[in-house]
Amino acid sequence: MAYIEVRNVSKDFKRRNAEGKDSTIHVLDDISFEVEKGEFVCLLGFSGCGKSTLLNMLAGFEKPTKGTVSIDGEEVKKPSAKYITIFQHYGLLPWRNVKKNIELGLENKNISREEREQAAQKYLELVGLKGLEQQFPSQLSGGQQQRVAIARGLAVNPEILFMDEPFGALDPITRNKLQGDLLTIVKEQKKTVIFVTHDIEEAVYLADRVFVMQANPGKIQKIYEVKIQRPRDRNSNGFSMYRAAVYNKLFSIKEANIEYMI
């Protein structure tokens, strides 16, 4: 039995259209896949392909209309601190300083204040923000804020990180740096990562496997196993080959859809 199992998952949303009639949008269609413990998987697709919806169901924020999601043999019914989601806009509490933000998930655990502070300090240093304990989120750059969110997630020692376009709002240089640091951290801490992105290079750089998704309705079109040694060189031939292959797949999907719609 695989660690994460997604079985025949479909998701419909009810929307009210312009004429005021309820209509059903078929967002995800009969998706099945498995992920092994310690894997780094990227869900790659255009906006509207349902990749974030899929992630939300894995994380327990939403329920599938059909099918089941199970992790470690248990069906996912609600969110759990065993699986932490990292959001694109960080979700830091602006009224708490960096240290207090990292301690958030530890506050309802039965541990002493000293232990909590030690844990916060440890993960703050792990993400490279030592010295910024007392700063407030608004005083930090976007990259630093996402580092705080990652530290907050790691502090509760989750088994899985669900990441919803976490670097999508960052400039390219910061994004590259964070991608490298994220890989180092999750490999060292042996986390399983499901990472949603629409950036092909990001997916090829990070993932053990890239799931290329198509839209209307959302499906997994193809799974690429990226067999490039780490640390990966973005300018190597192997890297370019994967990037080209994923690119062609992604855009031929789009062209096919356009033809279909005409």
Binding site: A59, P79, I84, H89, N108
Partner: peptide, 12 residues
Amino acid sequence: TYLKVASNYGIS
């Protein structure tokens, strides 16, 4: 997002 964070971390 705040509400998701709260439920993710099991905050009552």
